[in-house]
C-alpha cells in the first residue's frame, strides 16, 4: 500500500487492555485549568515506570463544564483498576487540590466508580461539606484560597492502550515535522490521548533486554545508527524513526485516530522526506488488540 508516495507496511500495531477514566478540571480561567491538568498529567508517559498514562484530551468551553467555568478534559489509563484509582487519587490530591482556583469533576458518569473527592475530603479536617446535586455527591473542602469543589467519584471503564505507528523519514527534522502534523490532527479526535512528550516517542522499545533487570530495551531494528550492526528494519535512506503512541477509551477510537494521524503524516510525502509508515508489535504476544495498518487505511 502506498499513500501519497509513502509506503504503508503490511504490519500491525499491537495494543492491550487498560482501565481508563476521564476527569474534568475547571479553574478561574483556561490558563489555570491547563496548569492543573499539565501538572496532573506530568510524568505519565508510560505505565512501565509512571504507574499510569495520562494526557489532556481537550479544552472545554464554560458551557461544557459542570460549574460553568473554563476547563480541561483529562484521560488517565492504567493496567488495572486499583492502580488507576490510586494514581487518580494521588495525582488529584497533589496536583489539582493544590492548584489555585481549581475544581475537579467526573468526566465519565457511567462505569465503575473510583474515588475523586471521596478521600480527598478529609483534607478538610472535619470542615468539609457534602452536597448532593442531581444524584451526584460533591465535596466542598475549605482551602486557603476559598473552597476546593470536588466530585465524590468518577467512572472507570475498560479501555485500550498502546495503539501506535512509526514514521520513517530521511532526516530527524523531517520525522519530527511529520509527527507534529500528525499530532495536531490527532488532537482533534475525542476519547484518545497521546501520552508521550508532545505526543511523540523517539525511544520506541522492544520487549526484553540482554540485562536481566530490564523488561524492555531500545527497538534496535528501528535504530538508524545500528543499521549495519543488527537485524535492521530500515532501508539505507532512512535516517530517523519516531513513534506516536495512542491510548483510547475504545478500539474504534484508536483505529480512527491512527488513520487521522497517518493521513496527516503521509500528506507531507517523500518530497518532505517521509518514506514509510510502520508499527510496533510483539508478534501478537502482548495484547488482543491488533491494528493492521493497511486495514485501517483502506
Amino acid at each position: 500500500m502506498n499513500i501519497n508516495g509513502v509506503q504503508i507496511d503490511a504490519t500491525f500495531a499491537e495494543a492491550f487492555p487498560m482501565r481508563g477514566t476521564r476527569i474534568i478540571i475547571t479553574a478561574q480561567n483556561t490558563k489555570w485549568a491547563q496548569i492543573a491538568a499539565q501538572t496532573l498529567t506530568g510524568f505519565a508517559t508510560s505505565v512501565i515506570a509512571c504507574g499510569c498514562e495520562a494526557g489532556i484530551e481537550r479544552e472545554l468551553d464554560p458551557s461544557e463544564t459542570p460549574d460553568g467555568r473554563p476547563g480541561v478534559a483529562v484521560l488517565i489509563f492504567a493496567m488495572g483498576g486499583k492502580t488507576l484509582a490510586k494514581q487518580v487519587e494521588t495525582r488529584a490530591g497533589q496536583c489539582v487540590l493544590t492548584c489555585p482556583t481549581s475544581a475537579l469533576f467526573s468526566g465519565l458518569p457511567d462505569g465503575d466508580p473510583i474515588a475523586l473527592g471521596k478521600n480527598l475530603r478529609f483534607f478538610g479536617d472535619g470542615f468539609q461539606i457534602s452536597k448532593r446535586i442531581n444524584g451526584r455527591r460533591y465535596w466542598r473542602v475549605p482551602v486557603m484560597d476559598g473552597e476546593f469543589l470536588c466530585e465524590e467519584s468518577t467512572g472507570m471503564v475498560n479501555a485500550v492502550g498502546g495503539g501506535n505507528f512509526l514514521i520513517l523519514a530521511e532526516s530527524q527534522p523531517q520525522a519530527l515535522a511529520a509527527c507534529e502534523a500528525a499530532i495536531e490532527a490527532m488532537r482533534k479526535v475525542p476519547n484518545v490521548i497521546m501520552p508521550f512528550p508532545g505526543g511523540v516517542v523517539r525511544s520506541g522499545s522492544k520487549v526484553g533486554s540482554r540485562y536481566k533487570a530490564l523488561n524492555a530495551s531500545t527497538n534496535d531494528a528501528f535504530c538508524p545508527t545500528l543499521k549495519g550492526q543488527t537485524q535492521t528494519q530500515l532501508s539505507p535512506e532512512i535516517e530517523s524513526v519516531m513513534e506516536i503512541v495512542v491510548d483510547g477509551l475504545t478500539a474504534e477510537d484508536i483505529s480512527k485516530v491512527m488513520r487521522v494521524g497517518i493521513e496527516a503524516a503521509c500528506r507531507l510525502g517523500p518530497r518532505n522526506g517521509i518514506r514509510r509508515i510502520s508499527a510496533g508489535n510483539y508478534g501478537g504476544k502482548l495484547g488482543p488488540f491488533l491494528f493492521h495498518l493497511r486495514e485501517i487505511m483502506a
Partner: peptide
C-alpha cells in the same frame, strides 16, 4: 463574604425545574 463555586453548580442542578433559582447563579 465569599464567591463560592458550588452555588452555580447547585442552581444549575435545578435547571430542569420551573424555578427562578436556576437562573440566579
Amino acid at each position: 463574604t465569599h464567591t463560592l463555586g458550588f452555588i452555580p453548580l447547585l442552581l444549575k442542578g435545578f435547571g430542569g425545574l420551573d424555578t427562578p433559582f436556576s437562573n440566579m447563579s
